[in-house]
Design a protein around this nucleic acid. Sequence first.
DNA 1: GTCATCTGATACGTCGCTGTGTCAGATGCC
DNA 2: GGCATCTGACACAGCGACGTATCAGATGAC
Lengths: 205, 205
Amino acid sequence: MTETRLYRGLSADERRRRRDRQLREACLDVVADQGVAAVTVEQVCARAGLTKRYFYESFPDRDALLVAVLEELFRTVNRRIVAALLVAGPTRLDRSRAAVGELTDLLADDRRLARLYVEAAGHGTLRPHRDRTFARYAEFWLTNVLRRDPTDPLARLAARHVIAGTTEVLCAWLGGELELGRRRVIDALAELGARDVPGPLGGAR
Amino acid sequence: MTETRLYRGLSADERRRRRDRQLREACLDVVADQGVAAVTVEQVCARAGLTKRYFYESFPDRDALLVAVLEELFRTVNRRIVAALLVAGPTRLDRSRAAVGELTDLLADDRRLARLYVEAAGHGTLRPHRDRTFARYAEFWLTNVLRRDPTDPLARLAARHVIAGTTEVLCAWLGGELELGRRRVIDALAELGARDVPGPLGGAR
DNA sequence: GTCATCTGATACGTCGCTGTGTCAGATGCC
DNA sequence: GGCATCTGACACAGCGACGTATCAGATGAC
């Protein structure tokens, strides 16, 4: 279409992507400092050191930015867990530990992500995304960690239970509410996540 | 102090309490229809059929109303679970089922409560209350359902895991995301909640 | 019936955020 | 250097919500 005139050594497209990234980072900063509800176009732009003009260049509104950032987080979680499982041992406990460890590391290394991850539950626009993702995580867990039939409703229920429980515990831990080291937390979560699902075929009766 | 002049057959205090209740109910209606974020003074007043004047008579601002309603919900949950446990059988599964069944009935019978219960996780002002309550639930669970030491950090972690998992599953079920009847859901949750906690003393290795 | 009180409606100024528009100055291209 | 483009700052009208204030009419006490 148009030209690719450089500006400060960057092409139009590079500049655009750079601003997009700045906005996403600023969004996470605001979430970390003041929560999802405080994410406004103006707050984000102030943090990013950009003007509103550039906000609307990348996103139609505040919700679109939040969704984009959340989806990116979910993709990262997914990618890293898949990668971790590739090199994990064969037992359920091995696989559970690999997955939980990866999630823990990710959220512990960037607390901004943790707050977004949690607060997604209460935000009108974010919640559907969060729900769909949790449902997918649950299915993924059944298939790749527990190695059970992912279509069994009871198994799905149990997997959902595990996903939510793991999330909650991680958030409580990240918030300083549990007096345990990272290692102990991962151990415990791995164990909780590796337990077989209940029901007619389950083994926990 | 002042008088107790009747108005439409009610004393000043009765009228005041009546309006307080109307506002709380209206708040729940708005939460059910449009979510916590849509709870504004004006919305609530419109629903309640009252004017803003009476809102500020009972609550300093919107957050205070939300907190009041949430705390009331938590008190109700607690009261009903305590009552259910009084007549429950002696095994962990009996007690788990009694507690889970009570919570399920409560949330299923008033969906407005369910939405508030969930969205509390993502709301700035509500979240601390929700967190503290979940921590108390976890302790309660350890003491009264699993009968374990409520000060053991690992046990607390596991209890928190159960509380969050149960909440999540109930919400998914109430949202129509699980193709299971009430009975099966309660069975499964009761079983998941009755499993012993992991760790040095746990039995799930 | 009269008067004090209570009620419900409405008006108002303020605030924060939105989305668009304008413009001077910086920067790159030739 | 001259010109087109890009940038950042700011102005603006509009909106929805807040919190306060005013006032006429309904209601109860005497």
